[in-house]
Design a binder for these strands. Sequence first.
DNA 1: GTCTATCCAGCCCGTCGAGC
DNA 2: GCTCGACGGGCTGGATAGAC
Length: 263
Amino acid sequence: MTRCPTLTRETDMRVLLCSARPGPSELAEALEREGLVVTIAAMAESLAAIPLHAAQQDAVVIELAELRREEVLLVRGLRSLGLQLPLLLLCRAATADAEREASDAGADDVLVRHASASVISARLRATHRRCAGHPVTRVTCANVTLEPGRRQVFVDDRPVRLTAREFDVLEMLMLRRGAIQTKEYLLGRLYGDTGGRENRILDVFICKLRRKLAAAGAVEIIRTVWGYGYLAEAPAGTRGSPDLPDWARPEDSPGAFRVRSTA
DNA sequence: GTCTATCCAGCCCGTCGAGC
DNA sequence: GCTCGACGGGCTGGATAGAC
């Protein structure tokens, strides 16, 4: 049974590396040595396939020989296909105009010339932080408070004892309060992939979480969204989080989307 | 009626401490 | 240092409830 690390350490960042050259590359190996989890996708595949590969990733890196109009159009195309992840272009040569156009088209960062793997990983993490929000020390939802750094959960300031997996699930939900987390996304973040794994294991953890939180006197904050997944939100009339205002919530993060009011 | 979520029971495995 | 047993956590199977 393989145990995958949880998502709470920044070094666990997952990166989809798209390169013209298929197969393992020196760059991929170097990035992995920097603590990134690298998935390689060949650019020869159709454009539409890239957002699909990116479903369980934290960022996308496109390795190019040269940044030209063609590549700018590629970036624009990826964004129009719904790719919302941080996107970094890595190229050996680019004009200032091409860099500006790429940024306008949706690239979050452009690295020219031979940047080292450590620089690339640092820029990736910085870009990811900008997109996902800087780490918070406390997240509150109704009367439930979660401290990611100390990996502790409190209900009305009383500590609640959770297992590692239970904490991971709750953390993922609370860090994106109000946004539905699909089961596939949650399982992907917990186990690295969802290949063949039963969704039921997630249900079990949700069930245990609900029971423990309820036993501790917590308000029901975990909601099931039929056919999609789960979300954490404070029921009407309860307090939300003073630490993370609505405008700062990472609603466009991968695997998450806001609940649309049907009223 | 069908599909999905929830929950219970139990098994497997890893960890830890006691005893030798 | 090694072995063994207790314990806890992770996971699965199956039954049931509930939403669509």
